[in-house]
């Protein structure tokens, strides 16, 4: 039917759009995802990034960071064990969870993620077990694939949300991935930093705080950039207004990225870094990470129920949707969809 592409006859659809919808009925269905999914996204990011940091500590950190690597393997096991439970609990027919591994579909981040989680779980378990029974060399080898899967764990959830028709999630796929990834790395570093403080290795905690500081800076920059993106697409409202707006602005951005950035920056400039500031920064990162996932998930569900948001979003010329050009063409031009 290729020759047919030029035969669209203009009609009422070529008139300017005047904001009319169908009795305010939602034009989309919101995802059924709730707290289990946002909790999983948080845990997956923290555990996946902790595994990366543990592997980096084991391979490059020298003997002083050996115990850090072991802590990281424990943190990784939180995601490897609780993660699948949360996901299966979120299925509406949980007894058929194994159908997730029935096929592989590269167009589906849910399918990609099922294999990332399986690989992460298996390699993390082997690494942790080998570490416990003293087979350091085995752990040293298996931690590498576990860390690679950990990188996937940190960011595939952003691809999962972006690859839907929900306007808020679909509006900025790349920036959402940067936010989830940097927040995951900050959470992993924060969890390990707290562990180092408890175990009394402040030197390692300071290095991890630097990692968290850099990741928080990236997170903050991506947050501000994505906010502009959402506003340009007129999909920002659910993330700006009401209680969710507060969770996002205060919880995810101010507490999740701002406070740790300030705390760790102050510590970085001091000759004697303060343990209290370090712990405060780490706790803020973890709380903010959870707030970010909750706000994005719930605001997305709300955005799907707002027909005006979707109709505006789905007028963007489709060929530029995945490019960085976000200028909305005049309505009549937007309607001309010929490639």
């Amino acid at each position: 039917m290729q020759q047919d592409l030029q035969t669209h006859k203009p009609g009422a659809a070529d008139r300017p759009y005047q904001g009319v919808g169908y009795y305010g009925q939602p034009a989309l269905k919101a995802s059924p995802f709730g707290w289990k999914t946002s909790g999983y996204i948080f845990l997956a990011g923290m555990s996946g990034s902790a595994q990366i940091l543990g592997t980096a500590a084991d391979l490059f950190g020298g003997p002083g960071m050996e115990k850090t690597a072991r802590n990281a393997r424990h943190v990784a096991m939180i995601g490897a064990t609780l993660g699948p439970l949360l996901l299966i609990g979120d299925l509406h027919t949980p007894s058929r969870w194994y159908n997730m591994l029935r096929i592989f579909r590269r167009t589906s981040p849910m399918s990609i993620g099922s294999y990332i989680l399986s690989g992460f779980g298996a390699f993390s378990a082997v690494t942790a077990a080998a570490d416990w029974i003293g087979m350091k060399r085995v752990a040293r080898v298996t931690q590498v694939p576990a860390a690679l899967a950990g990188a996937g764990m940190s960011v595939y959830t952003a691809a999962l949300l972006s690859s839907t028709s929900t306007p808020l999630w679909a509006a900025a796929p790349r920036l959402l991935a940067v936010r989830f990834g940097s927040s995951a790395m900050a959470c992993g570093a924060a969890a390990l930093s707290l562990g180092e403080r408890i175990d009394g290795r402040p030197g390692n905690a300071e290095r991890l705080d630097r990692v968290a500081m850099v990741a928080s800076a990236v997170d903050l920059a991506a947050s501000l950039a994505s906010r502009r993106e959402y506003e340009a697409d007129h999909v920002a409202a659910p993330l700006e207004q009401g209680a969710l707006g507060a969770v996002h602005k205060i919880g995810a951005i101010a507490v999740g990225a701002g406070i740790p950035l300030v705390c760790h920056a102050i510590n970085a400039g001091r000759r004697r870094p303060s343990a209290a500031l370090s712990v405060l920064g780490s706790l803020a990162v973890l709380a903010g990470g959870m707030a970010l996932r909750t706000a994005i998930l719930r605001a997305g569900n709300r955005s799907a129920e707002r027909p005006a948001d979707y109709f505006r979003f789905a007028r963007t010329p489709p060929n530029t949707l995945n490019e960085r050009k976000r200028t909305l063409l005049p309505d009549t031009a937007a309607r001309r969809v010929l490639p």
């Binding site: 009422a12 169908y22 167009t107 691809a159 839907t164 990236v218 027909p307 789905a314 949707l321 995945n322």
Partner: peptide, 30 residues
């Protein structure tokens, strides 16, 4: 009439086109 009058989007998109940009950017960040 315009598609929106019937509750239809005028330019819907293929969601899977966003998998690679999101995953690629995310992994690069990591």
């Amino acid at each position: 009439d315009r598609p929106e009058t019937y509750g239809l989007p005028s330019a819907p998109t293929r969601a899977s086109n966003r998998v690679a940009p999101a995953l690629g950017t995310g992994l690069a960040t990591m």
